[in-house]
Simulated assay, not measured.
Amino acid sequence: MSKVSITRSHSYDPQDVSRALKNGFELLGGIEQYIKPGQKVLLKVNVLAATSPEQNVTTHPEVIGQMIDILKEHGCEVWVGDSSGGNNQTGNPTGRALKVTGIAEVVESRGAKLLNFDSTGFEIKKGGKVFKELYIAKPIFEADVVISMAKFKTHGLTLLTGGVKNMFGVVPGRAKANYHKEAQTIEKFCTGLLELYKEVKPHLTVVDGIEGMEGNGPSAGTTKKAGVIVISPDAISADRVLGEILPCKFEDVLTTYYGHKMGLGQGDINKIEVLGEQISDLNITPFKLPNTKLVSSLPGFLTSWAVNMMKVVPEIEPECVGCSFCINSCPVDAMALSENNKAIIDYSKCISCYCCHELCPKKTIELRHANRMGKVVAKLMNKRL
């Protein structure tokens, strides 16, 4: 049986977070079961973008700080790193993101090592059927133990971003955008993610679900107070439990469903031992799903018809400031600046990867149904959900 612990913390109060983390590890047999004193432990955090902790886009710095304290008490050397999303011609987006999120401060104040994967160098590993070559930040291979420190969020493309999706950040810089270009369907992209995950499989997954995100995540949704920390030595199992909390169908989160089929982890909820808080007792209201996934809530016999009717595309809002971050980050060069200094999208080139929506620093790109009838159905489905 795979094991997943769920503990409660309803705030980011340092004592509450520390207690939830320590209790979670104790339920799994103690941190000493997975990490030895003296080892180099890399916390692969989620630093998607330069946002404040209160926006709940990234792993909260308090969870990271308390995790550092636990590992240092255990006698470990601690590294913390990631590569953010997006590309910026005027500077390094990851460096800025680490500062704005408060992660750099909490890491440095505790004497841990801060790593920007865009500048640590990388190794090239043989990929699979989708990603032919895997560009992976060197610290992943230099650490003795890797822990995926994920954030519990919905995601417009993959529905859920948890322990598995979090590992996409080991890919430095522009290479992430290139992978979107190589895998232009959700099925291919999730398969590619799992090819990467197989190479960089973390020893532990710790999910910050104290305050997560629902709706059009992973950056433009709304805060969801779930009050949980989820820990497991198997990221597939951790994500399966997150899917049950959402809740959603097993097959709707392809990184979990395919990962289980590929033998990369346990996705059968009946073969996962949930320790501590039980899912049925959490009393968490269902998460709002992204607009892109409402079709999965329709009856099966309507699905093929609904896919086309409910197609979702990114749309630029009038408030766009023309910063060009989305343009520089588009993997297929489907965006440009108009004469009035607003971003525009060439839909004949758009592959619906939603990177522009995910990375827009001003949140002026929305995901909307291209079909008028789809908009009507979406409103009805959102009311029901």
Rank of each mutant, 00 (worst) to 15 (best):
T205Y: 12
L196R: 13
P299M: 01
N308A: 10
P53N: 11
L264N: 06
L289M: 14
E244P: 02
E211T: 15
E195P: 01
V130P: 01
C323G: 10
G85E: 04
L337I: 12
C326D: 00
A20Q: 04
G162I: 05
D234M: 14
S11V: 06
L159W: 00
G243Q: 05
G81N: 06
K138P: 03
D82M: 09
S5M: 03
A334I: 03
S5I: 03
G127S: 07
N328L: 13
T59F: 07
V332S: 03
K44Y: 08
T255W: 05
G75P: 00
P247M: 14
D268T: 04
G192N: 11
D281S: 13
H203N: 13
G29P: 01
C330W: 07
C360N: 10
K383D: 01
S348Y: 07
E142F: 10
S11N: 06
H203F: 04
N308D: 10
V47I: 13
V376P: 01
K176Q: 15
V313D: 14
L193K: 10
G127T: 11
L294N: 03
T101N: 04
N92Y: 05
Y34V: 12
E339H: 12
A370L: 11
G156C: 12
S11L: 07
S109P: 00
T120N: 01
I269L: 08
P14T: 00
A238R: 04
G86C: 05
N166A: 06
G267S: 04
I35R: 07
V228K: 07
K288N: 07
C355W: 11
E187L: 14
D16G: 14
L385M: 12
G259W: 02
I35E: 05
K293G: 10
D208A: 08
G127R: 06
V241W: 11
N341V: 01
S338W: 09
S237M: 11
A97S: 15
T185A: 12
T185Q: 08
P202M: 01
E211K: 15
E62L: 06
R19S: 08
P331R: 12
F131M: 13
I365G: 05
H155I: 05
T292E: 07
F287Y: 02
G38E: 01
L71Q: 04
S296W: 15
N328I: 04
I124S: 06
G221K: 05
Q184I: 15
I316R: 03
A220P: 00
P37G: 01
R368G: 03
P93A: 04
E182R: 15
F117H: 05
F25K: 05
G29W: 09
L289W: 12
E73V: 02
K224A: 11
I68K: 02
F131A: 09
E277W: 06
A97R: 10
E108K: 09
G128S: 12
F131S: 09
